[in-house]
């Protein structure tokens, strides 16, 4: 039968690649919904914890709610309110971004093969997907001008970090303090971004972060 973990990981990688190539902000937000849900589903399908208590299950549901509904909704509101539709002149073009995505995954395969971590079988892909997501998020933050795309890059980075956490900790613990911390961080970050975006937009009539360089005392 089809291997669900790998299928979800492949979907995450697909979403990373599409996010590198997408010009529309709304499309980007939709891709983040897909990625958020896929990332939060991963722990449920990993082999080494077949039995999950009710606590973790509730936690993962909350996770899906936050990553798949709450954060995208906030992003969506931000996109609507500042009335921007697309990234017009990124620092690094879309073709070059997709090519960079290829290089990133090549490098992450290389890194995973050479780290020689004692991962359970079948989780090497998890690490590859995690490193790729993280690095691509980082790249997205650097390569785009609009504040909102940079926040989406940050979200991708966090997704990658979460995946790395899942790959390495094997979820032997029952307390999800770190995960909740990350989520809270993200949520606050996105909310603050919304407020700041609004302010940048009223001050400059645009949310291009390069405009901030013009600020003088």
């Amino acid at each position: 039968m089809i291997n669900f973990t790998e299928a979800i990981l492949v979907i995450i990688l697909l979403s990373v690649l599409f996010s590198l190539g997408s010009t529309r902000l709304l499309a980007l937000v939709r891709i983040m919904v897909l990625q958020g849900v896929a990332v939060s589903l991963i722990p449920l399908f990993l082999k080494d914890h077949g039995t999950l208590g009710s606590g973790p299950i509730i936690f993962f549901q909350v996770m899906i709610l936050i990553k798949g509904v709450l954060i995208p909704a906030l992003l969506y509101l931000a996109v609507k309110r500042v009335a921007i539709k697309r990234e017009i002149e990124p620092f690094i073009g879309y073709h070059a971004s997709i090519m960079t995505g290829l290089v990133i995954i090549l490098v992450s395969v290389f890194i995973t093969n050479h780290l020689r971590l004692s991962l359970p079988t079948g989780q090497a892909t998890l690490l590859i997907a995690a490193i790729t997501t993280m690095a691509s998020g980082f790249f997205l933050m650097m390569a785009r001008k609009k504040a909102i795309t940079q926040v989406i890059g940050y979200l991708m980075l966090e997704n990658g970090i979460y995946l790395i956490g899942t790959a390495l900790t094997k979820h032997s613990h029952t307390l999800y303090i770190v995960e909740f911390g990350v989520l809270l961080d993200l949520l606050v970050g996105v909310m603050i971004m919304g407020i700041i975006l609004n302010n940048i937009n009223t001050a400059f009539d645009d949310v291009d972060t390069t405009l901030l360089g013009r600020l003088k005392d």
Partner: peptide
């Protein structure tokens, strides 16, 4: 061209993954 390039990148992803794991 970006659309077609994305399709190329997708399979290339898959081809890279066959090398690794």
């Amino acid at each position: 061209p970006k659309f077609i390039l994305t399709s190329f990148a997708l399979v290339f992803f898959a081809a890279i993954l066959t090398m690794g794991v």
